[in-house]
Simulated assay, not measured.
Amino acid sequence: MMRDVPSDRELMELQTSALFVSDRDGRLRFIREPGYEENELDPAPRLFMGRTPEGNVWRFRHDLPADLVRELEDLCRAEPVLPGFTTAADEPRNAASIRDVLAAHTPITAEERGPAYRVPGGVPVPENVVLISEDNAHLLEAHFPWKITSRASFRFAPIAAAVKQGSAVSICFCARLTQDAAEAGVETAEAFRRRGHAGAAVARWAAAMRQLGRLPLYSTHWSNVASQAVARRLGLVRYGEDWWIA
């Protein structure tokens, strides 16, 4: 049975744990990916901040010097708590200062921001969506053959597939996974986009996660308009914003 819905800040803590492998001091080490050993994982970003109306969550990568961490910690602690939810234009107030500190250490190589959502219970699941197993894995062959053999395949965690003309045309899978939460990964074959298939797959995947006792989470980038449209159509509940810098 799923417990009561956590607070926005608690959801951000759960998502942070799902996104990254951390050490015992809470410092980020790797980007979590189901089915892979730690020595196969990509390094975590140097900074992650999750912003919610109930408080901010921030983490730093394990290899940052102590004096740099202290400087970043002061800036993150001074970052105001959101009075409401941001838009793409509403970057953190201390973003420029944080970038300057990181850039003085080593050049910034990547940066992303975007909304984070939880999938509420009771989202309707269309009939043309199935969970992939050994018995129906052939449904992936036309558009997603890599999912049959990938380390994080349906053998490790559920994959939901929207099926059209005898093939999976959109899939939702566990991009990140812990015992408490799962982060959705979604892919749709190009010819079948903007037809509601992605939302259908997300709905079935979320139901499967809830049956396993995990909170289904969904996040995206501000630049990904199509992904945000899926969230709106499904009625996903936004709890915050993710921001990371590598």
Rank of each mutant, 00 (worst) to 15 (best):
N136H: 06
V169Q: 00
S170P: 06
V21A: 11
T109M: 11
W205K: 05
C172S: 15
R151E: 15
R27M: 12
A231C: 05
T16A: 14
P6K: 11
D90I: 07
K164C: 10
H221W: 13
G235K: 04
G166D: 04
W146P: 00
A96D: 15
R24C: 02
P145R: 01
R46A: 05
E112H: 13
A96L: 13
V237F: 01
V5L: 15
D4P: 12
N136F: 07
A201T: 04
L139D: 03
H105C: 03
D25F: 15
T178F: 04
A231H: 10
R77K: 14
V57N: 08
G84Y: 14
A66P: 09
E71A: 08
P34I: 09
A161N: 05
S170V: 02
E54R: 14
S153P: 04
P34Y: 12
W58V: 00
R32P: 09
L102H: 02
R214Y: 03
R32D: 15
P107N: 10
D242L: 02
W244N: 03
D23Y: 08
F156K: 11
S17P: 00
N56K: 09
R51V: 03
P158A: 08
R51G: 04
A208P: 02
T87G: 14
Y218P: 01
A189R: 07
L14E: 09
R9Q: 10
A200P: 09
P53E: 13
G50C: 06
M2N: 08
I148P: 02
R61W: 09
L212G: 08
F48S: 09
P65S: 10
R51H: 08
A103Y: 01
P45T: 04
R77V: 13
P6L: 13
W243A: 05
F156E: 15
E33D: 10
H62K: 10
V125F: 01
G213W: 04
A96M: 12
L212Q: 12
A18E: 13
S219N: 15
E40S: 12
Q15Y: 02
A116I: 01
P43E: 14
A78R: 12
E38L: 14
R204S: 10
A160Q: 00
V129T: 13
Q211T: 04
E241Q: 06
R151W: 08
A184M: 04
A207Y: 00
R51N: 04
I31S: 09
L28K: 00
F48C: 02
A95M: 06
P145A: 03
A181T: 02
G114A: 03
D23E: 06
L102K: 08
R9K: 11
Y239N: 08
V81I: 15
C174D: 15
V130I: 05
A44E: 05
G26D: 03
G84E: 14
E111L: 08
R32L: 15
S167A: 14
S97Q: 13
T188H: 09
L41D: 13
I108T: 13
S133V: 04
T188Q: 07
A104L: 06
R59Y: 05
L140W: 03
C174G: 13
S150G: 06
G196R: 01
W58S: 10
T220N: 12
L82S: 11
E134V: 10
A206N: 08
W243D: 10
S219P: 01
P80T: 05
A88L: 07
M209K: 00
P80M: 04
L47R: 11
L41S: 08
R29S: 05
R155L: 15
D8H: 12
R195D: 05
V5C: 12
R99C: 12
L47F: 11
